[in-house]
Amino acid sequence: MAAGGDHGSPDSYRSPLASRYASPEMCFVFSDRYKFRTWRQLWLWLAEAEQTLGLPITDEQIQEMKSNLENIDFKMAAEEEKRLRHDVMAHVHTFGHCCPKAAGIIHLGATSCYVGDNTDLIILRNALDLLLPKLARVISRLADFAKERASLPTLGFTHFQPAQLTTVGKRCCLWIQDLCMDLQNLKRVRDDLRFRGVKGTTGTQASFLQLFEGDDHKVEQLDKMVTEKAGFKRAFIITGQTYTRKVDIEVLSVLASLGASVHKICTDIRLLANLKEMEEPFEKQQIGSSAMPYKRNPMRSERCCSLARHLMTLVMDPLQTASVQWFERTLDDSANRRICLAEAFLTADTILNTLQNISEGLVVYPKVIERRIRQELPFMATENIIMAMVKAGGSRQDCHEKIRVLSQQAASVVKQEGGDNDLIERIQVDAYFSPIHSQLDHLLDPSSFTGRASQQVQRFLEEEVYPLLKPYESVMKVKAELCL
């Protein structure tokens, strides 16, 4: 049975990233139509530049190519590739079939990587351009969430054990800070992308030097003109047959890092959902379990974690691919890159769409948070109580021993009897502590235990987050809708 299948058929496997999760716009960027249309555009740009620099290419040939950029006979191309065992030459023939007058000058002087690699770089750039505003929107939604809850005390956790208090907004800023680093890295790697350009079979530009009869300047002009037509500021000066596969490492490393950030955020949300302090959106008709109707599973956060793990592992592909590119190139890269580049971007696209949807509907339960604080705060307040007693004339050592005994009794009630923490009640009825009984409410005010959390939130948002989001103001209103 021949390899390949009808990918629109229910009898043929289709990647869930495309069929179930990723956005239509990201799927289109990695589609065959987008790819092969870009090949034709690159052939047109090459012909236009070659004509401008004096090669015998007519206006009629150029116009014929322009008129057929979208006229792609995919069936013919597939048949040609089956016959020739070469995808680029299959599309040269297919393009030439609908451009008979231009057929002889299509791909003039070029090698397969002229269309293959340059198209990949265009796709990487455009895919990054799709991700950047999506990530900015996630940051914006979380920034709104953090600002609104900047002063809401909550129990902090280290080692997932109760620690000092923080605020809900401050905790959210930990998430935002990681995503801001990801946004900066995505922008950097996007701006650092260079075009492969017009380089020939081993990167020496020998074929173009021959076409222009040894004119170095025209060869350099050709490279520059096509690079500018493709919208790049610069091209690699040095290439082998391909652009260095280190570029793929750079791009997928940034995406993998984004995956790590999203995994951490969504894990926190899942843990908070278990504590009943916070939940992701839950639709009115949504079913959490087929057997347990009360369940409210954090399905979206779980999906993000599941896909983020996949995204983090994909960076190993370009690392290994770059390491086995012998001399000017081997074909070890080809099949692998067809999979890992598309999957990385479709996965990143999915987790950003999902995280935006989550961040637009996060639900906080202040009463649950308050109750958990009441359970733990008495123990945390013991040092403040000791200091207040010393100020009232008591002995630190005597007070410490009193607190120690009462704390152990209260802990026994919590752990052995399943009761509430009654340390404060014990202190309130103990005559030894009568000098500070009137101060206990103040000493137990949760806001006095959150330090500068709310001020940190305000400063972080104003100095770091809002300036970073400013270039994306025009796209901030787009909502994230999930079908599944």
Score class of each variant (00 low, 15 high):
residue 4 G to V: 15
residue 5 G to W: 13
residue 7 H to A: 09
residue 7 H to L: 13
residue 10 P to D: 09
residue 12 S to P: 06
residue 19 S to W: 13
residue 22 A to Q: 10
residue 24 P to L: 10
residue 26 M to R: 02
residue 30 F to P: 00
residue 31 S to E: 07
residue 32 D to M: 10
residue 33 R to T: 08
residue 34 Y to Q: 05
residue 36 F to I: 15
residue 39 W to F: 12
residue 43 W to L: 07
residue 48 E to A: 05
residue 53 L to W: 01
residue 57 I to T: 04
residue 61 Q to C: 09
residue 64 E to V: 13
residue 67 S to F: 08
residue 68 N to V: 09
residue 69 L to F: 06
residue 72 I to M: 12
residue 76 M to F: 12
residue 78 A to I: 09
residue 78 A to D: 12
residue 84 L to I: 06
residue 85 R to Y: 10
residue 86 H to N: 00
residue 86 H to V: 00
residue 87 D to L: 06
residue 88 V to E: 01
residue 90 A to T: 13
residue 91 H to I: 03
residue 93 H to W: 13
residue 101 K to I: 12
residue 101 K to N: 08
residue 102 A to K: 00
residue 103 A to T: 14
residue 104 G to R: 11
residue 105 I to L: 10
residue 108 L to I: 11
residue 109 G to L: 01
residue 110 A to T: 13
residue 113 C to A: 09
residue 113 C to Y: 05
residue 116 G to P: 03
residue 116 G to F: 02
residue 123 I to S: 12
residue 123 I to F: 04
residue 123 I to D: 02
residue 125 R to N: 10
residue 129 D to E: 14
residue 131 L to E: 14
residue 131 L to H: 10
residue 133 P to D: 09
residue 134 K to F: 06
residue 137 R to A: 15
residue 139 I to N: 15
residue 140 S to L: 14
residue 143 A to E: 02
residue 143 A to C: 06
residue 144 D to P: 12
residue 145 F to Y: 09
residue 147 K to A: 14
residue 147 K to L: 11
residue 149 R to V: 11
residue 149 R to K: 12
residue 151 S to K: 12
residue 152 L to G: 03
residue 153 P to V: 08
residue 155 L to H: 04
residue 155 L to Q: 03
residue 160 F to N: 07
residue 160 F to V: 03
residue 161 Q to G: 01
residue 163 A to I: 01
residue 163 A to R: 00
residue 164 Q to F: 06
residue 164 Q to C: 08
residue 169 G to K: 03
residue 173 C to G: 12
residue 174 L to S: 14
residue 182 D to P: 05
residue 184 Q to A: 13
residue 184 Q to Y: 08
residue 185 N to K: 08
residue 185 N to Q: 13
residue 187 K to A: 15
residue 188 R to Q: 07
residue 192 D to I: 12
residue 199 K to W: 00
residue 200 G to E: 01
residue 203 G to L: 02
residue 203 G to N: 01
residue 204 T to Y: 03
residue 206 A to E: 05
residue 208 F to H: 08
residue 208 F to C: 08
residue 209 L to F: 11
residue 210 Q to M: 10
residue 213 E to C: 14
residue 214 G to E: 10
residue 220 E to D: 13
residue 227 T to R: 06
residue 227 T to G: 09
residue 232 F to N: 02
residue 233 K to R: 11
residue 235 A to G: 12
residue 237 I to A: 07
residue 238 I to H: 06
residue 238 I to N: 06
residue 244 T to C: 12
residue 244 T to F: 02
residue 253 S to Y: 09
residue 257 S to K: 10
residue 258 L to R: 02
residue 267 T to Y: 04
residue 274 N to I: 04
residue 276 K to R: 07
residue 277 E to Q: 05
residue 282 F to N: 15
residue 285 Q to I: 12
residue 287 I to Q: 04
residue 287 I to C: 11
residue 288 G to Q: 02
residue 289 S to H: 01
residue 290 S to N: 01
residue 294 Y to S: 01
residue 295 K to W: 03
residue 296 R to M: 15
residue 297 N to E: 01
residue 299 M to V: 10
residue 302 E to P: 02
residue 305 C to F: 03
residue 306 S to H: 00
residue 307 L to H: 15
residue 309 R to L: 04
residue 312 M to E: 04
residue 315 V to C: 11
residue 315 V to P: 09
residue 316 M to K: 02
residue 318 P to Q: 04
residue 318 P to E: 01
residue 319 L to P: 03
residue 320 Q to F: 10
residue 322 A to V: 14
residue 323 S to F: 02
residue 323 S to D: 01
residue 325 Q to F: 09
residue 325 Q to R: 02
residue 329 R to M: 01
residue 331 L to T: 02
residue 333 D to H: 04
residue 334 S to A: 06
residue 335 A to R: 02
residue 336 N to C: 12
residue 336 N to W: 02
residue 337 R to W: 01
residue 338 R to S: 02
residue 339 I to G: 04
residue 341 L to C: 15
residue 343 E to G: 12
residue 348 A to P: 03
residue 349 D to S: 12
residue 351 I to C: 11
residue 351 I to A: 10
residue 352 L to W: 03
residue 354 T to W: 03
residue 357 N to L: 05
residue 357 N to H: 09
residue 357 N to A: 08
residue 360 E to P: 03
residue 363 V to R: 06
residue 364 V to S: 05
residue 366 P to F: 02
residue 367 K to T: 02
residue 367 K to H: 08
residue 370 E to K: 07
residue 374 R to E: 05
residue 375 Q to G: 04
residue 377 L to A: 03
residue 377 L to T: 00
residue 378 P to C: 06
residue 379 F to A: 02
residue 381 A to E: 08
residue 382 T to S: 13
residue 382 T to Y: 04
residue 384 N to E: 04
residue 384 N to I: 13
residue 385 I to G: 03
residue 387 M to C: 10
residue 391 K to L: 05
residue 392 A to Y: 07
residue 399 C to Y: 06
residue 401 E to R: 14
residue 403 I to S: 05
residue 405 V to C: 14
residue 407 S to W: 00
residue 410 A to H: 04
residue 422 D to F: 12
residue 424 I to V: 15
residue 429 V to C: 13
residue 430 D to W: 07
residue 430 D to H: 15
residue 433 F to P: 03
residue 434 S to P: 05
residue 436 I to E: 04
residue 439 Q to S: 08
residue 440 L to N: 04
residue 441 D to V: 13
residue 443 L to F: 06
residue 444 L to P: 00
residue 444 L to K: 04
residue 445 D to R: 11
residue 446 P to T: 05
residue 447 S to M: 13
residue 448 S to Q: 15
residue 448 S to P: 11
residue 449 F to H: 06
residue 451 G to F: 02
residue 452 R to V: 10
residue 453 A to K: 03
residue 454 S to Q: 10
residue 455 Q to R: 12
residue 457 V to Y: 04
residue 458 Q to P: 07
residue 459 R to S: 12
residue 466 Y to C: 12
residue 466 Y to M: 15
residue 467 P to E: 09
residue 468 L to P: 04
residue 471 P to Q: 15
residue 474 S to M: 14
residue 475 V to C: 11
residue 481 E to C: 14
residue 482 L to S: 09
residue 482 L to M: 15
residue 482 L to R: 07
residue 482 L to N: 08
